[in-house]
Design a binder for these strands. Structure first.
Length: 289
DNA sequence: GGCGTTACCTGGAGGC
DNA sequence: TGCCTCCAGGTAACGC
């Protein structure tokens, strides 16, 4: 599942393979893939054809390609299963190919492939927010820990100001962006905090600890090329990352905790799952978890 | 306004 | 073999 490290790997690939090139034609094979581009497929294709790509930028899990003139961008969110692939012209279409972008130089084309269609593309306006040029739909997203302007103490304060469960706050992209279910569970395990711990009453050191752990685990994952459990997550060349070999708790139900040996537990959380160690990560007293 | 819940979507895995 | 159900989960819309 693409979270911050996986999206950054894709951004690096786009920066290398498509920035500096001019789009020639855009083919939308599934309208849902551009559902956030309200004027529809014809407008989407028309606004991209003939335009140059000048930069590949990311905030959290959002990724965009700035268009020449720097007033618009091709915005992407990979959702759960989205891939941005750079493929030689003539390569057989992927089963779930949604959008194809060909280039004026006749070189490799850019393909948006998405099995579950939670992801999508849109052409959006760019506007300056807090000194940074952002697509409109990204304006409310907080800075991520890889952002040079990320302010850890501001994030600590925002986390402690919430009145909810700790994991729910970690997944809130308006506080700190880029953290998804996998890295939230790993960060909580590293900081020995239970996912249901209330943010109210969370000490400043504890908040610093869990945010530092999230930053650390995502940096390690980036170094490993991202996390992959199946063929759904790949970089622009179609290669999977291998950070999943380093995960301590995510998806490890029934396996021993790498720290104490207790079997890893799984509990339902927000229509998904939380993986944790019942001994290392003591549940909050009032929650009886 | 803040928080919690739900819909969206597809395909693999497992049970019967 | 075929059918059914469950599960994966990021985001936005909705209700309280």
């Amino acid at each position: 599942m693409p979270e911050l490290p996986e999206v950054e790997v894709v951004r690096l690939g786009l920066d290398r393979h498509v920035v500096g090139r001019t789009m020639a034609a855009v083919e939308v094979l599934h309208p849902r893939a551009i559902r956030r581009h309200e004027p529809g497929p014809l407008d989407f294709a028309g606004r991209l054809a003939g335009r140059g790509l000048v930069a590949a930028v990311r905030r959290g899990k959002y990724l965009w390609l700035e268009l020449d003139g720097r007033t618009e961008a091709l915005l992407t969110h990979l959702g759960m299963s989205g891939q941005m692939l750079v493929q030689p012209v003539g390569t057989p279409d992927e089963k779930h190919l949604r959008v194809r972008i060909s280039f004026a130089d006749g070189g490799p084309e850019l393909r948006f492939v998405d099995q579950r269609t939670f992801g999508g593309l849109a052409v959006t306006e760019l506007a300056e927010v807090d000194g940074t040029l952002l697509p409109d739909p990204v304006a409310h997203i907080g800075r991520d820990p890889m952002d040079p302007a990320f302010d850890p103490e501001r994030a600590v304060a925002a986390l402690r100001a919430k009145r909810t469960e700790l994991k729910r706050a970690l997944l809130d992209q308006t506080l700190v962006s880029g953290i998804g279910n996998i890295y939230a569970d790993e960060a909580l395990w590293r900081s020995r905090l239970h996912w249901a711990r209330p943010t109210a009453g969370l000490t400043r050191p504890a908040a610093r600890l869990v945010l530092a752990a999230a930053t650390e685990v995502m940096a390690e994952a980036l170094g490993a090329g991202g996390t992959s459990f199946d063929s759904l997550y790949v970089n622009v060349n179609g290669q999977s990352g291998y950070f999943d070999r380093s995960l301590a708790v995510y998806g490890k139900t029934g396996q021993p905790c790498p720290r104490c040996g207790t079997l890893i537990a799984r509990e339902p959380f927000m229509n998904r799952s939380s993986y944790f160690c019942r001994v290392c990560q003591r549940p909050p007293v009032s929650g009886q978890r």
